[in-house]
Design a protein around this nucleic acid. Structure first.
Lengths: 338, 338
DNA sequence: ACGTTTTCTGCACACGTTTGCACGAACTTT
DNA sequence: AAAGTTCGTGCAAACGTGTGCAGAAAACGT
């Protein structure tokens, strides 16, 4: 149905070979022929078939992006960074979510493999080891975002320096005069949570403050309900903290809600800090002190990295990790203790 | 490099034709041969080439999804609905964003056309008419989400009943006793905004309340800043409203902020209602009364619709529109006026 | 005038599948 | 025992491109 280069060839009175070359600006075709054929192609509404081209060239011009949950606002921005970077290029983007479901992960990777994607960006915390092995055996570049699990030479990394971030947050609270600082974590968030907690502990140590086990709460999820529960636990302590650092902004919002419901005020009675600087962090009351993780840039760097790798000869060595640093954002949810 | 059916054929001592048929469970191949070949394929890590198959079958098993902005939380949920529906099927998903940029829109559609997607789901309010014409000339189903712009027989629609929604919201405020109700719109949101404003006006009319022009503010964007600006305008009126219906939750959050900054309280002095029921609507203070638009289902229905169309014979007639109804969610940002 | 180089174009095959048709073998029917 | 039927398999062509090689035509140098 669709018009092919053969149709154009017939109409132009040349061979389909010449048409193919003309459309690809092959130097051996005369300027005049190229112009004539391109014009004709335009007139006939010719659209090249990526399938046929891919079959011949062994390049699909498609990148796979695998995330955990699409609705995660963090991933949303990462995705945007990727999309913006890819859009001007000739690459398109396959998207799929795994949802921590091994069955689904397997299907997704299978689909990407069949489509012969030229590269994969992974932004899911949980990768089945066998699936990764399967991926590696296809010879395409793999970039992992915020996942330092793998110490694998074939895998490229782009991640944010979380340890330093929570260290800065802790420092900020210490500078305000707080001495009783708690950490509200998310056990399901794996390595990321570990890193943030580590930064918190290092921050305390640097300030010469003691590490108090009951000030460290490991909630399960990273959702607001978890902030409510965790905060209620802290409030029930004999000697509650005067400041709380949360694993992320969602939890912080939950924590604020719990504090308010207990009849206390943020930041007057307790200071609360989040992490991620989600869009709405500035609109909640009080506006949230948080750490801005460069989500968009994470996606951007991951995409750039893969494009570089693909444009390079396979031989050339590339840096196999990019570390990004975020920014402490001080708003009104943190003040000096009274 | 990759192993092909010919490799399997050689190893199995049959023709590649037989291998192809065996892998596709063609009835004319003996059970025994099928089993043997499938086992062999597994052993050799055979992965079929979607490009080659697509070339032959004229089906790519890919659906294109075109959105306006990926980071829009509304679209995020729509996307999730689509992805969840597509995932168990054999279809994969191309994602691209247009950003109201005609240049970009053109590129995106061109890419989808080259990839020969089997269908397209459009969830961008702004579609260039020429681009749509271009799309229609390829013979693939097109589903538009929340966009009733087109009255086109070749285009399928899935949308939310916005008029009824704001009518209900208005009714709710009237029931509470409000008589001075304002509407804070978003001019750039096109038809959606028109529909919501229409529902507001119908609600007033039904309650026998007068339509007061200065209570209708048409801000530009749909972001919180716009809510701040618009609300400040309303507060400056000689006779400010006692309740405000906002185009969406983002604007409502902005409006609350403006009211609070003016030294007034929500809902005590002014009631505020949003629209969309975004994730955080329940966590802001006070928790937001809003209208829950079934975002996830919108995506789900769109994807289901396209899958049905593709599985059906082309001839069979399908309903070409699905209308979904949402749900009024009453929280604490709306109370009776004092 | 000829041979040589340069410029342009076409032939034919390849990429990895699917599929209509034909063919041989085994099995059933008369 | 011949004819018809079913079953399982292979041949070859096709899908729409890209590309090495050869070859024709034109331009050049002597």
């Amino acid at each position: 149905m669709a018009v092919t280069i053969k149709d154009i060839a017939k109409k132009a009175g040349v061979s389909h070979t010449t048409v193919s070359r003309a459309l690809n600006d092959h130097p051996a075709i005369s300027k005049e022929t190229v112009g004539r054929i391109k014009l004709l192609a335009e007139e006939l509404d010719y659209v090249p078939s990526a399938a046929a081209r891919g079959l011949k060239t062994n390049r699909s011009l498609v990148l796979g992006v695998i995330v955990h949950r699409i609705e995660d606002p963090f991933l949303t921005d990462v995705l945007r960074g990727i999309e913006d970077t890819l859009n001007p290029s000739e690459y398109s983007l396959f998207l799929a979510a795994t949802k921590r479901d091994p069955e689904r992960e397997k299907r997704v990777i299978q689909a990407m493999a069949e489509r012969r994607v030229d590269g994969i960006i992974f932004s899911s915390l949980y990768i089945g080891v066998q699936q990764l092995r399967y991926l590696k055996q296809i010879d395409i570049p793999i970039v992992l975002i915020n996942n330092q699990t793998m110490q694998d030479p074939d895998v490229y990394l782009v991640y944010h320096q979380d340890v330093e971030a929570t260290r800065q947050l802790t420092q900020h609270l210490v500078d305000l005069g707080h001495r009783k600082i708690a950490y509200l974590g998310s056990a399901r968030s794996g390595r990321t949570n570990v890193k943030r907690q580590q930064g918190y502990e290092e921050g305390l140590e640097k300030a010469g403050l003691p590490l108090c086990p009951e000030y460290i709460i490991s909630g399960t999820t990273s959702r607001p309900e978890n902030g409510i529960n965790g905060m209620n636990g802290l409030l029930a302590l004999a000697d509650p903290p005067t400041a709380v650092i949360c694993y992320n902004d969602m939890i912080a919002i939950g924590a604020i809600k719990a504090i308010t419901q207990a009849g206390l005020s943020v930041p007057h009675d307790i200071s609360v800090a989040g992490f991620d600087n989600i869009d709405l962090a500035q609109y909640v009351t009080p506006p949230l002190t948080t750490f801005h993780q460069p989500r968009y840039q994470l996606g951007q760097e991951a995409a750039k990295m893969i494009l570089h790798i693909l444009q390079q000869d396979k031989g050339a060595q590339r840096p196999d990790a990019v570390v990004l640093h975020g920014e402490l954002i001080i708003r009104q949810s943190t003040v000096s203790p009274h």
